[in-house]
């Protein structure tokens, strides 16, 4: 029995998205973002939104993505309103409510930017929903990233949920103790110090201990056994090269668009 592999995952069927490696997924997100910057017709933007949404729906729609969309929704609405009313190139009225006129140009401008934001959210959501922290860590190490960096990136992913837990505990205790409602901003800021300082000292102490432990446990030694990727991926290297080249071309293209405006 292989004790170090999650046996549940072995039984579970491999999905199509498990054949795509994490780096390709990230490059894909970057590629879609660059496309939306290079080609701005609204129909094209909408089809990109639909494409990335399809990717997401065919894999896993995580709660985080839904949260991200709802988080941005308010901003998108205000953006449409502000640009529809005040965009500097506004000429053609789109519609009027009472005496307020919305303009076509501003509306289109805001719609393009909103589409871009949705594309980024969906493409990143696809990456996040279909990979796990340990899969990413193993893959990055296997393609030659120094273990120190892999550790750094991944430990952040692990520390956030822990901190979240600590925080809700503290907030619970604080609520039970009953803090007086504070009036001014300064009073509010001062009221968090008695909680914040011990928490910060504890957090830094844990990092000191962890750094000692890691050194004692032979972290980052040259003879470390390289991790093997969790899944065999389909044409990983080829996809990296292809996507990187296309992304570079798109960036070059965008830069040329900007420069040629000044020529």
């Amino acid at each position: 029995m292989d004790i170090r592999d999650d046996s549940l995952q072995k039984i579970a069927r491999r999905h199509w998205y498990n054949f795509v490696d994490p780096v390709t997924k990230l490059l894909l997100a970057l590629f879609l973002t660059m496309l939306s910057f290079d080609f701005t017709p609204l129909y094209f933007e909408i089809s990109l939104v639909l494409f990335s949404l399809t990717l997401l729906l065919l894999s896993r729609l995580s709660k985080a993505t839904v949260n991200a969309v709802s988080f941005c929704l308010f901003l998108i609405v205000t953006m449409v309103v502000i640009q529809g009313l005040f965009y500097s190139h506004n000429v053609h009225p789109l519609f009027s409510v009472m005496t307020i006129t919305f303009y076509r140009e501003g509306f289109l401008y805001a719609a393009t930017m909103s589409a871009r934001i949705l594309i980024i959210i969906f493409a990143i959501g696809f990456f996040m929903g279909t990979t796990t922290v340990s899969e990413n860590a193993k893959y990055l190490e296997s393609i030659g990233m120094p273990y120190k960096l892999v550790y750094l990136l991944m430990s952040v992913c692990y520390i956030l949920p822990q901190i979240q837990q600590n925080l809700s505990k503290i907030q619970f205790v604080e609520r039970a103790r009953g803090i007086n409602p504070q009036k001014t901003v300064m009073q509010k800021v001062r009221s968090i110090l008695p909680i914040l300082i011990p928490l910060i000292i504890k957090t830094f102490d844990q990092s000191i201990n962890r750094s000692i432990t890691l050194q004692l446990r032979g972290f980052d030694r040259p003879e470390r056994t390289l991790a093997t990727p969790k899944y065999p991926y389909f044409k990983a290297k080829f996809s990296h090269y292809l996507l990187s080249i296309v992304i570079l071309l798109l960036i070059g293209c965008k830069l040329w668009q900007i420069i040629s405006r000044f020529l």
Binding site: R4, D6, A137, Y158, R210, T213
Partner: peptide
């Protein structure tokens, strides 16, 4: 403190 002995990067006790 045993908690700070952990690597902070393992999904399972075996890892």
């Amino acid at each position: 403190d045993p908690a700070s002995q952990l690597s902070g990067l393992a999904d399972t006790v075996a890892d």
